[in-house]
Each structure stands twice: as structure tokens, then as C-alpha cells.
Design a protein around this nucleic acid. Structure first.
Lengths: 208, 208, 208, 208
DNA sequence: AATGAATGAGCATTCATTCAT
DNA sequence: AATGAATGAATGCTCATTCAT
């Protein structure tokens, strides 16, 4: 599958992936136009369907492609020997923001994909998202030292609260960037905000 | 504005509102079809535009309509003399779930509207959402006794963490219902889950 | 016919006529909107059709109305005792321009009506136009002293050439005004241009 | 631009051009229906827009197309070595009528286009018309011997009067054909009428 | 491998006119 | 007399996908 695509020279692959990711993250799955993608990529109409069969397959391919590019690099960078929960999480936030700067388009596509809700790709995408989240939760938290957490509360719930909080913070940051005229992140501000949250969460849920 | 619509008999109003809310929440603003709405409502093409001028005005009307129906009823039910933060919040969750059962379509529409991101209605809808959230945050938390919260952490951040957590819980519940074959909520389970979270949050952020 | 309309108070008649003439001359018959007319006139949808039956009858009524208002006043002003062809014609041009200033909307409507070419009103309007032109050619040229014209050319053709020339001049003036940002006539310039043409035509076709 | 269209086989090109010209000259720009055009041309909805992007581009294309077909042939036929003004003009009238018989639809379209006044194409079409007229006035009158004209009148005005007269004659002929049941020209009658006018104009404005 | 012509259902919106009140 | 709710055909244009070359 997609072997035809992988046999292309790298430059053409990139042109197609970039054009498609750009279009999908700008307009969402349903409103994205394959016409616009081929125009931007400089290839013919038929070729896109030659490689990817249809719009849906193209989208799902892009999701996997983005996953491979970003998640792999994330795990190359993250220090999984750091056992302290908050230290590891804090580093993850920093790496995430770094990747966001290096691969803004891929990252943007992945973020949007996690929010995507089109009926046409619902079933398949939901499955991928679920795997994505489950696998990474497990992998990311492997070996973490939970002994520092209070013992009078349900640890699973505490971890959920922390995850929820970081996700919402990240959503808010993305959303603010979207609304701003330049679409730019203020990384320093976000990091400082995250620090404040880490501080409160640690006070609330670590042993004192 | 919309006086033409309000002069209709109630039954017809309902048919139109229900058809439109259903279509919009199923497909999102951009993909929703006015054709489908009029077919479902059993009215003619021209009539919809006679009442609402265009698709955008219709959508914004529905938002206000939903707001009026649901939010007003919420404040009739909630006991704002209850000063304890968690007790009041817990009651709010229960009322929300009750309203969700009574007005599932309106509720669903409002939930989707808060996530809606179409370019065509962006500016106006964003303004409404912002007002919606600001007014209700202030109103809902009025008079709450914050003296029970720990004093060694930033209260604003604590409140945000709690809000984030409840929102994510609610999203998850909605999402699970969506995926289930019957689209039904298991209220009792959700309430119990919420109780567990309240317990953890109180332990973490109330004075001991 | 139209007795219902004539029984209205004058102010309402004017509102309707003005609104309709404005809409028709701005957009032409086909594109003119009866919706726009009733909105501008401040009357209800049904009322317009109560008075005029349909769009076509309304248009034909307006043509007659404009004719009556403008042509009658034209003949009150023109000095039909002036027997010299060019003097009478020159005065006609001046009166036409004067009326254009006093009743710009009616005049504009009549000018546009003479150019109107919609299939829906073609037959009836063409008949009216033909009558309009025939009757007025006859009436306007009545008693003119043609003895000053050269006798070695066909007088009918000479008169046609002169009429053609004046019509085209008038069209050009209207057209230039339309293209200018302010839509204003430069009366003095038009009069002087007309004088130059009169001079040439007299030299060519009067006895020397 | 329009290379897609030019790559079609000639028969299909003709079907499309003929259908479009017919529709536009019958109903004018605004009321012409692209639906009707594709139906008449026997092509699909999307294809028309595949070639021409939108209605406006289609119209402007047709204008250029008509210009190229008709004006080029006109200059192949006209004898520009004939220096006498009236002889050259007389030949032009004859050629115009000949072309009108050979390409009645193109000719009709061009005539209507010169009168077209739709807001949507105003700017672009006005520019084309202006170029059309300027270039052709210059080219057509090049080398003409004006020494036979009277010297006591303004030559520019005389030429305008002659042009006006011929245009109005032509309009009248077209108009009469339009009103007749068979829509046919009586060429011989028109030529004879034109001769009468030429005779009067020469007597009036040539040296005696 | 690569092209791009071809399809026709679908979209939001406007229109003149009718008719029950 | 006067209202305005109601109709549904028609508008220009876009879309993902196919297929002969």
C-alpha cells in the first residue's frame, strides 16, 4: 500500500504531503479540495488518485505519516530515564513546543486531525486516534515513579486530571495563536504559564 | 428581527428549529444543507429565507434560541444560595445532565456550536461564545465561598484546573455516548465518576 | 384600469412611482426586484400587485406615467410658433436638458425605457415606443418651415440624418455621465457641442 | 489561458461557442443561463467551468473570439487602397452585410455585446469595446482622401455625423429584421436605402 | 507513470406571484 | 384596502472521482 508513492523521489513526496497537509489543516477534511492540493503540489488530478485511491485514504495516510515523523522524533528526544512525573512531563511540553517550531505544518495537521470530526472518516480516524493515545500514554508514562504522589487519593484520577489540564492548556494556546493576527505562539509565556500549573498540581497531588 | 418567525404558531416554530439544529449539529455549519432543513421541517425553500435571510443568520438565531431555552432553565434550577464550591458545582453537573435528557437536540446543538469553527460565522459566533462564557462564569460562581481552598496555591489556577477537568469529563461522556450504538448516557455511572473526581479535587485543593 | 392606484393620496402614489422608476432604471426590467420596490416604497408585497396586477403592467404604467408628466410639460414649454427647423430643434434640446434636471428620475426612467429590450415586455413596450416616437415626430415638426432646406436632396432623409445625429449625441452625453464618478451632466459643454453640430448640419443642408 | 478549450476538437468548440453566443445575445449577460448553454451545447455542467472558470470569463472570451473571426475577415475583404471616403464606406457596409449573412450568430452577439451594460462585466467589457472602436476607427479610415470634403465645416464633426447615420441605419435594419416573423434581412432594400443616404451626405458635405 | 477532460448532484439564495386573513 | 406567509423553479458554481490516452 502506498508503495507507488514511496517510489517517488523525495522532493515530490514532500510537495504532495505539504500541499495536502496544508489544505486539510486549513479547511478541515470535508471542505478541503483535492483540486487545491494538486494545484499546490504541481501534479495532475489523476496522479493523486493513482497514489492514494481517494480522499479518505490520502487523509489516513497523512495521519500515519505525521505520526511517524513527529512521534518518533519525540521519543528520540525525551529522556525516559527521568523518573519524576512532573520533570518528565515538563520536558515533554518543551519538546512538543520545539517540534511545533521545527515541523509547524505537520504538527498543525496532527493537532487538527485529533479534533477532526467528519462523518466520512469518523470510524477509521477514531480508531487511529484511540491507538495513538493509548499507546503513547503507556509508553510515555512507563517507569515513572508514582511513589511521590499522595496515597490518600486515586492515582489514576490524579493522572487524568493532570492530563486534562495540560491538554486544555495546549488547546487554549493553539486557539489564542489562531485568533492572533500573526498566528504565532509566545513560547516563553506558555512555558511560564505551564510552570504555574505544574506548581499547583504538585502542591495538590504530591506528598507534602 | 426574527419577528416574522415568532409570529408563527408554536408547532411550526418547533419543527423548523428542530430540523435546523439537527442538521447543524450532525454536519457542522459548512456542510449543513438548508435543503435538508426545509425538507425535514416540511416547509418550502423560500420560507426559510423569508424568516432568517440567510444561513448565517439562521445559525446565530439558533444559538441565541438554545441559549435562552437552556441557560434560563439552568438558572431556575440551580441553588445559588449554596456557597460551597463543590456542592454547587456538583449540582450544576447534575442539572446539566438533566437538561441533556430533556432537550437533547438543543443541548447537542449548543455543545457543537461551542466547538464550531467555520470561517463564515467565525467573528459573530466567537463574540457570542465569549459573552456566553464570561457572563456565565461570573454568574455561576457569584457568592461562592472560596475560604475553604488552600491558601498556598494560586486560586485562579485551581479553579481553571477544576473547570478543565469537568469539561473534559463531560466531553468524554458525550463522546462515549456518541460511539455507543444507542447514543444513550449512563447517568448513574457518570455521576459516580464525577463524584470520584470531586473527591480527588477536594482532597488536593481544599484545606485539610 | 389603475383606478385603485389613482385613488391613493398623492404622497403614496409618488412614493410608489419613485421607488419603482428608480429600481427599473437602475437594474433594467428583468433584474429589477419587486421586493426592492415595495421595501423602498414602504408598502406591502400584496399591495403592489393589488394595484398593478403584475410586474409587466407596473412597468407599462410607469412608461405612460412618465410620458404624461414629461411630454406634456415639454409641449407647454416649446414654442411651436418658431418655424425655423434648427431654432425649434435647438430649443427642444435645451428644454430636454432642463427637464432632465427637474425630473431626473422620471427622465432617466424614460431614457432607459427607450433602450429596454426585455423579452417579457418586448411586444407591448415596442408598440408604445413606436407610437411615442411617431406621434411626437409629427407633433414636434408640425408647421416647420422646410423651405430653407436645399431642394436638390431628399428632405425626409435629411431630417432623418439630423434626428439620428441628435439622438446619438444625446446617447453619448448620457453614456459619458453614466461613466463619470458623479453621474453629472456638463450641460454647458453639451450645449456647445450641439451648437457645433447644428452649424455643420445647417451648412450642409440649408440653402446657402 | 483558454488553452484547454483550444485543445478540443473543432466541432465541440463550435457547439459551445454557438450555444453560448446564442444564449447571451438572446437574453443579455445577466439573464443568460449557463444551464441553458450546456444543455444546448450538449456538455456537462462542470465542463463549461472547467474551460472558462466562470460566466464572466466565458463572455469576455466570446467577445475576443467574435472579434477575431469577424474583424479579421472584414479586413481581408475590404479594399484599403480605395481612398474615396464614401466608396470605402459603401464597401464596408456591403461587407458588413455579407458577414452578417455568413456569421449571423457571431455578428448578432457582437452587436449585442456593444450594447451590453451589465454591472458584472462593465469594467472589462468597456475597456475591450473602447479598444475595439479606437483601433478600428483608425485602421479603417487610414489613408482616406479627405480633400474632397468641404473646407468650411469641421471635418471631425462631419465624420461623426456620417458615422452616427450609418450606425442608426444599421440599428434600424437589425431592428426591423428582429420584428419580422422570419428574422430575415432584405439586403437589397437596405443597400438601396444606404445609397440614398450616401447621396444626401455627399451632396451635403463634399465640395460641389 | 502521468494527464486532464468529463461528469452531474449538490450548494445557498432570489424571484414574481397568490391568497387567507 | 392591506398584509406578509408561502411557493418551488431557477441561478452560477464546486466537488471527488473516472478513464481514455
Amino acid at each position: 500500500m502506498f508503495t507507488k508513492f514511496w517510489n517517488l523521489d523525495r522532493e515530490k513526496q514532500d510537495r504532495i504531503v505539504n500541499a495536502a497537509m496544508k489544505e486539510f489543516s486549513q479547511k478541515g477534511y470535508d471542505l478541503a479540495s483535492t483540486n487545491q492540493i494538486v494545484k499546490e503540489a504541481g501534479i495532475s488530478k489523476g496522479l493523486l488518485f493513482h497514489y492514494f485511491q481517494n480522499k479518505k485514504q490520502l487523509y489516513l495516510f497523512l495521519f500515519d505519516y505525521g505520526y511517524d515523523r513527529i512521534v518518533e522524533e519525540f521519543y528520540q528526544k525525551i529522556d525516559l530515564t527521568q523518573m519524576d512525573f512532573f520533570k518528565r512531563t515538563r520536558e515533554a511540553v518543551m519538546i512538543k513546543m520545539e517540534l511545533l517550531t521545527v515541523y509547524p505544518d505537520i504538527f498543525k495537521f496532527m493537532e487538527e486531525a485529533l479534533l477532526e470530526d467528519s462523518a466520512e472518516i469518523k470510524v477509521e480516524l477514531e480508531k487511529k486516534k484511540k491507538e495513538f493515545i493509548e499507546i503513547n500514554m503507556e509508553k510515555f508514562f512507563e517507569g515513572v515513579d508514582y511513589s511521590k504522589f499522595r496515597e490518600d487519593v486515586d492515582l489514576k484520577i490524579v493522572l487524568k486530571i493532570i492530563t486534562f489540564t495540560l491538554e486544555k492548556l495546549s488547546d487554549e494556546a493553539l486557539f489564542k495563536a489562531k485568533l492572533s493576527p500573526t498566528h504565532e505562539f509566545d513560547y516563553e509565556k506558555i512555558r511560564m504559564e505551564a510552570e504555574d500549573y505544574f506548581d499547583v498540581l504538585m502542591k495538590g497531588f504530591y506528598k507534602q
